[in-house]
Design a binder for these strands. Structure first.
Length: 927
RNA sequence: GCCCGGAUGGUGGAAUUGGUAGACACGCAGGACUUAAAAUCCUGUGGCCAUUGCGGCCGUGUGGGUUCAAGUCCCACUCCGGGUACCA
């Protein structure tokens, strides 16, 4: 019988489904292991071969762990809310729920064909009311809590109210947007509305004014991605910066804990580094600068307090509240014009266009608190309102952006730090600022002669003593904007009474997404939910019109998988205390700063509420690389319908044209398929080389427009799921970005057929022997067990595939058909290629599924070697090999080597200076 | 600009802790089997020189350095990919 992968794969997929092979439950008898994939957004295009890369890796690991005796939780679901479905709905009127359902069905079919070991009974969908019930619930908890900096955790808002009633704001140490001061009496005298406004300032989920990209023509808010050069990508309408009330999550309150938690998780150093940079802790000083002829004070934050003698001007962010107060009447016109100009630029543009220097003088002067000098206050968009205090002291001598600004506007530059190994020079001659943190202070009064770190310390002390500021730790992590003016997302369980936001009670959850007539904003510019009929509480109060963003549903899905059908709570204590946290999380790096920060925040919040038992949700995290597309080209002779093969094209004047990679095999074009591809090419003529049309190629993004999208079902149809699984792993290291190239897939498929032939004879009959295996056969098997297990544990699946190939090649050469060896081999291969191994497991006479078998145990005894073949080098160059007993001592090795005939040739009569012997590694003779 | 990756044959890649560079596979070339094809098997395959044999020299993006020994460590640079919130 031949290796009939189509039949085998269908048969075992059916078996697994009928026998609930992958269903898991809490089982206190077994240790748990939780393997999670980042769940996909079910797009209309279906899965391409890039998606399963991480899923295959995690599946191999899950199956391995299961064979090692663990109770493995390995679930899958869908991140089902998202813009594409809504965009499609706007264009076609088709309800996003319908397209989403359709896409999910297609995804499921594709996933099922690859043979994953998911427990589908635990599937979650973020758009299912039974699921988003708990997203809304978590939001209500955030609304009802604040962050207490004293206890370093979330506390009920009632605790804050009690404190206000007892002592006013006096004892409060809570994370808030603004600072308040009031007495208990004043608090009690406040109106309900004023009290609620104060509380809003402290809630973990709160409403506040934020700058957004507002597109008046589309009546909607746009993401940075959707804006290019001040115009909307869709439609090309003008976009402006607009202040709007939005819900935010106080992620910044958790910045210190999000930073510290990174030390406890097993993630790559680069990923941790990216998160650390994102959280961005910086120690510095907040300083007060008085404004001349005014009682206005400017607070600025700086990490380089030591350079305060080099300050020659101040800069305000255009959005700063101080701008209006500090603009003089003479400058008003110029400032207004500038503000109007910056309104058109998105934050992204302000960030990338570093070389474009712009700004305007406010007309006011500040007084340097140390030198008492008067310095001009400018306004420029290189200072952002959202970070620090929205105002800076500019030190053009030692900050490159300040330097560029000073040069552009002809402002003075003073050198206050002389970098180590340099002399003081005239700043007028400089090409750039001297940002170094090493050097000696000059022109700096009492700091003169100190090195930079000492000067920073000294200045901080001085600032404290003189009461002109305070030492402060600043984080760049911002609160997350949590509302979207969209339809296809979770509704907020919030209603408004007299303009004040109030929460729905928990028994009113889930608040279901209403039906609307069109998926567009209302005529008056309200979000789509403004179209919903009866979108109000039963008492007639209007409900919130925004919906939640994509990351709402994905922030706690890993908890829901633990107990997906629970209608009473997000996750039961029993399920949570058994499954605890994700042991292995596999997904793309693109989530390094978004999802992975938000879900850690979300988890820590729930941890504070004692709803979950672990402070960090993802113990180990592996990033799979992106699979890029490999495009193919044909070369059309200009002005004709003639196509020239790759290596002949230089003789013609040609245009390269993308051709669908599915019509190309090993870069050879199926010319008939090409003719039928497009009516335009029906009469195409070909100039062939060696009777073939060879295509050119390039690595590009995998996309429809490049015709380089490869669909996994096509590969499964042609080669089988086991081949696809092995080939995706064989392609290269899991973490590396690599192009998809079907050219090598035959090798992997051939390997499986070769394996099959170890079990069957030439006439197709099972031919397996019960004889005792030879030492050589056992050595081959056990060296493979060792290598593969080692590789699985370090996620080096590409090298395990070659180890499998080497093993089968060796067993084929040995003509080994011993059951003992073959059974061991399919045991280690089963996590990678489960279908063929299930079948062969049965061929060997076993009952049931190989997933229940134990992973083969390594026996080191079979690997013992008496001799080692040493590479012998002379001056580091390998010259010949010499087999020596492993127990030979150094002196004897040296003697044997030097006496060797080949050595005599290389020594050429000289005495070696040194002989380096590394046992079981190398011998190097230094002459 | 800043942050994080990466660069090894014609191609994907291997070399896990500084110790035989190119495992494994694709492709290519030659051969066996076959009426033929497919399938399968065997041999060769980094470059240059020599090829009568032993072989020799060069070689992991570029230029330096450390070391008995460097793809691997250090310094400087080039190019490519990804992220990005000018974070003072």
């Amino acid at each position: 019988m031949d290796y009939n992968f189509r039949e085998i794969e269908k048969k075992w997929q059916k078996y697994w489904q009928e026998n609930d092979t992958y269903k898991v439950d809490v089982d206190s008898e077994k240790p748990k292991f939780y393997v999670l994939d980042m769940f996909p957004y079910p797009s209309g295009a279906g899965l391409h071969v890039g998606h399963p890369l991480g899923y295959i890796a995690s599946d191999i690991y899950s199956r391995y762990k299961r064979m090692k005796g663990f109770n493995v939780l390995h679930p899958m679901g869908y991140d089902a809310y998202g813009l594409p479905a809504e965009q499609y709905a706007i264009q076609t009127g088709q309800h996003p729920a319908i397209t989403t359902e359709k896409n999910i069905k297609r995804y499921r079919e594709q996933l099922d064909k690859i043979g994953f070991s998911y427990d589908w009974s635990r599937e979650v969908r973020t758009c299912d009311p039974k699921y988003y019930h708990w997203t809304q619930w978590a939001f209500l908890q955030m609304f009802g809590h604040y962050y207490d900096k004293a206890t370093q955790k979330a506390e009920p808002i009632e605790k804050l109210i009690a404190a206000f009633e007892a002592n006013g704001s006096a004892d409060i140490n809570a994370a808030g947007t603004e600072e308040f001061e009031f007495t208990a009496t004043e608090w009690k005298a406040m109106s309900e509305k004023d009290q609620q406004n104060v509380l809003m300032n402290f809630r973990m989920a709160y409403l506040a004014d934020t700058m957004v990209n507002w597109c008046p023509a589309l009546g909607t808010v746009l993401a940075n991605d959707e804006v290019k050069e001040g115009l909307s990508v869709r439609g090309g309408h003008p976009v402006e910066q607009k202040n709007m009330k939005q819900w935010l999550l106080r992620v910044s309150a958790y910045a210190p804990r999000l930073l510290d938690g990174l030390d406890t998780v097993d993630w790559s150093d680069s990923l941790k580094e990216v998160q650390r940079n994102w959280i961005g802790r910086s120690e510095g000083a907040e300083m007060k600068f008085c404004v001349k002829d005014s009682d206005v004070e400017m607070d600025i934050f700086t990490t380089r307090a030591d350079t305060v003698f080099g300050v020659t001007f101040m800069v305000l962010a255009p959005e700063s509240e101080l701008v209006q107060q500090l603009t003089t009447s003479e400058q008003k016109e110029a400032v207004d014009a500038y503000l109007e100009e910056t309104k058109k630029r998105t934050e992204r543009e302000r960030l990338t266009e570093v070389k474009r220097v712009s700004g305007v003088f406010s007309g006011s002067y500040a007084v340097n608190p140390l030198t008492k000098e008067e310095i001009p206050i400018w306004i420029s968009d290189y200072v952002l309102a959202g970070y620090g205090t929205g105002a800076i002291m500019a030190v053009p001598g030692h900050d490159s952006r300040d330097f560029a600004f000073a040069k552009h506007f002809n402002l003075p530059i003073i050198q206050v730090v002389v970098p180590s190994g340099e002399e003081a020079t005239d700043p007028a001659t400089w090409e750039d600022s001297k940002d170094s943190k090493e050097g000696v202070m000059i022109n700096s009064g009492f700091l003169n002669g100190m090195n930079v770190p000492d000067a920073i310390e000294k200045t901080k002390e001085y600032i404290n003593e003189e009461n002109i500021g305070k030492v402060k730790v600043n984080y760049r992590l911002r609160d997350a904007i949590f509302s979207r003016q969209r339809y296809w997302g979770e509704p907020f369980p919030i209603y408004f009474k007299d303009g004040v936001a109030y929460p729905l009670t928990e028994d009113q959850l889930p608040l279901e997404l209403p039906e609307i007539d069109k998926y567009l904003p209302t005529e008056s510019g309200e979000p789509p939910l403004g179209r919903a009929k009866e979108w109000k509480t039963k008492d007639g109060y209007p409900l919130e019109l925004s919906t939640m963003p994509g990351f709402a549903g994905s922030s706690a899905y890993y908890l829901r998988y633990m107990d997906p059908k629970n209608d009473e709570e997000l996750v039961s204590e029993e399920a949570n205390s058994y499954w605890q946290d994700v042991d292995l999380y596999i997904g793309g790096t693109e989530h390094a700063t978004g999802h992975l920060v938000y879900s850690r925040f979300w988890n820590k919040f729930l941890f504070d509420l004692k709803k979950v038992c672990k402070d960090e949700p993802f113990r180990k995290l592996v990033n799979q690389g992106m699979i890029q597309g490999r495009s193919n080209f044909v070369y059309r002779v200009k002005g004709t319908n003639q196509f020239v093969s790759l290596n002949l094209r230089k003789e013609y004047d040609t245009t390269p044209i993308h051709v669908d990679v599915n019509m190309v095999s090993n870069d050879i074009l199926d010319t008939e398929a090409f003719k039928n591809w497009n009516p335009e090419y029906k009469d195409a003529e070909f100039v062939l080389e060696d009777g073939k049309y060879i295509c050119g190629w390039a690595v590009e993004k995998m996309s429809k427009s490049m015709f380089n999208v490869v669909n996994p079902d096509v590969i499964v149809e042609d080669y089988g799921a086991d081949t696809l699984r092995l080939y995706e792993m064989f392609l290269g290291p899991l973490e590396a970005h690599k192009p998809w190239d079907t050219n090598g897939i035959d090798g992997v498929h051939k390997f499986l057929r070769k394996l099959w032939r170890l079990f069957y004879d030439a006439s197709g009959n099972v031919n397996v022997s019960d004889e005792k295996a030879t030492a050589e056969e056992l050595k081959t098997l056990h060296k493979t067990i060792k290598k593969v297990e080692d590789d699985i544990l370090r996620f080096s699946f590409n090298t395990s595939v070659s180890a499998f190939m080497i093993c089968v090649n060796e067993l084929s050469s040995l003509k080994c058909n011993k059951k003992e060896v073959l059974e061991g081999f399919i045991g280690i291969l089963a996590p990678f290629a489960p279908h063929i191994c299930e079948e062969l497991w049965k061929v060997l006479g076993n009952e049931g599924s190989i997933t229940e078998a134990e992973f083969p145990v390594l026996n080191e005894d079979y690997l013992k070697e008496n001799n080692f073949t040493y590479p012998v080098s002379f001056n580091g160059k390998m010259r010949f090999k010499l087999e020596l007993p492993v127990d030979m001592d150094r002196a004897e090795i040296e003697k044997t080597v030097l006496e060797n005939e080949a050595s005599q040739r290389w020594l050429d009569g000289k005495t070696p200076k040194k002989v380096i012997i590394v046992p079981k590694k190398i011998i190097n003779v230094v002459i």
